[in-house]
Structures are given as structure tokens and as C-alpha cells.
Simulated assay, not measured.
Amino acid sequence: MDPSNRPDTEDASDRHETAVPTTRPDAAEPSNRPDAVDSERLARLRRVSSLLDSAVEIPVINVRIGLDPLLGLLPGVGDATTTAASAYVVAEAAALGAPRATIARMCLNLLVDALFGSIPLVGDAFDVVWRANDRNVRLLEARLSDPSAERRDRRVVVVLGIAVFVGVLAVSAIVLATLWWLLGVAGVV
């Protein structure tokens, strides 16, 4: 068999060998401290958080507010917009390597913000006090500097998860009892 007619097995194996990544001897072990790119991302998250939750101080009452409670005054559109921006903060936290329990806790903060924040007017006042984005950025910074605190996050997630479950059950029971009562008043039951 002529060598020029042989399949390119040698060339393919050569390409495979060159495709295997090599480790650089000067590559440092990854650390828990954010590098320059992570510092820029954290700074961006702080700016987004501040814009949403605490951009402006109201001088008479010394309370800081952001776009979240202000846009929440717009029915439908405002809450959806700020929830999307808040989800960006959580997505960036995941990209920065926050533990799953921390991400779950951040999502619960957003869930509480979305549930109570969607109530007209009262929810906007709640947004001023709750400040889910500021909470989430502080939580992210704390976990990036001390990853061993993940156990506390797990406990909080379990407790809040149980509380949400019990709350949903309570609301469901109230709705069913109200429907039963209405059907009784209407003479159906």
C-alpha cells in the first residue's frame, strides 16, 4: 500500500496530541478571593443594586429609595422590569461562583420581594424597606469572602422554604374556606 493512499491516522493522532491542553507551570491555584474581573463584576452589581434599591435619599425622612419602589408604581410593567434586573444580580452571583445555598437564599429574597412588592402601594413601601438587591449583594460579598458560612445559608433556605410552604397552604385553606362559604350562601352546598 502506498503511504500516500493510507488514511491520515498518524496525522489525526498528532492533532489529538496537540489538542490536549497543558497546564502552565506558572498557573496559580485558584483562590476564593475575586480577581480583577470579579472585582469589576462586583462593582457593577453594587451599582445595579444601588440604582434599584437606594439611589436617592429623601432628605426630610432620611430614607434611601431606588428605582424598584418607583417603577413598582407602574402597574404590571414596573414590577416585571425590576424583577428582571434583580434576576440579573442573582445570575451574576452564580457566575461568580456563589454556593448553591446562597443562590437559593438570594432567590428567596427575590421571591419575598416579588410577592409583597406586587401589592399596590403597600408593596412599594415594602420595597423601600426590604431592599432585596442590597441584601443579595451583601450576601454575595459575604460568601465570596467567607465560603464556610454556606451552612447558615442552607439553614435559612430550609426555614424560609418551610415558611413559604406553610404560607401557601394557609392561603389555599383560606381560599377554599371562602369558596365553601360562598357556595353555602348561594345555596349550592
Score class of each variant (00 low, 15 high):
84 A>G: 07
157 V>M: 07
177 A>N: 12
139 L>K: 00
122 V>Q: 06
35 D>C: 01
72 G>C: 06
185 V>G: 09
5 N>V: 15
22 T>V: 15
128 V>L: 10
152 R>C: 05
164 V>F: 13
147 P>I: 02
46 R>Y: 01
139 L>H: 07
120 P>D: 08
57 E>T: 11
118 S>Y: 14
154 R>Q: 08
97 G>R: 02
160 L>V: 07
5 N>A: 15
181 W>S: 12
183 L>E: 13
124 D>T: 13
144 L>T: 00
65 I>L: 04
30 P>M: 04
77 V>P: 02
169 L>E: 14
130 W>F: 14
102 T>A: 01
92 E>I: 10
22 T>S: 14
60 V>I: 06
19 A>V: 02
2 D>K: 08
17 E>G: 11
15 R>L: 10
166 V>D: 05
179 L>G: 11
140 L>S: 01
5 N>W: 15
5 N>P: 12
70 L>N: 06
72 G>F: 00
134 D>Y: 01
68 D>E: 15
128 V>F: 11
147 P>L: 03
74 L>R: 01
105 R>I: 01
32 N>F: 12
55 A>V: 05
164 V>M: 12
75 P>D: 09
114 A>R: 09
143 R>V: 00
49 S>F: 00
143 R>Q: 10
158 V>Q: 02
69 P>W: 08
79 D>P: 01
109 N>H: 09
2 D>W: 09
17 E>C: 04
135 R>Y: 00
105 R>S: 10
171 V>P: 05
146 D>F: 03
87 A>W: 07
80 A>G: 09
109 N>D: 13
25 P>E: 10
80 A>M: 15
24 R>S: 12
85 A>T: 06
30 P>A: 08
173 A>V: 12
52 L>I: 05
86 S>L: 13
111 L>F: 04
124 D>V: 07
37 V>P: 05
69 P>C: 14
35 D>P: 05
10 E>F: 06
1 M>P: 10
125 A>C: 12
91 A>H: 06
14 D>T: 01
7 P>N: 11
7 P>F: 14
65 I>V: 07
172 S>P: 03
131 R>I: 08
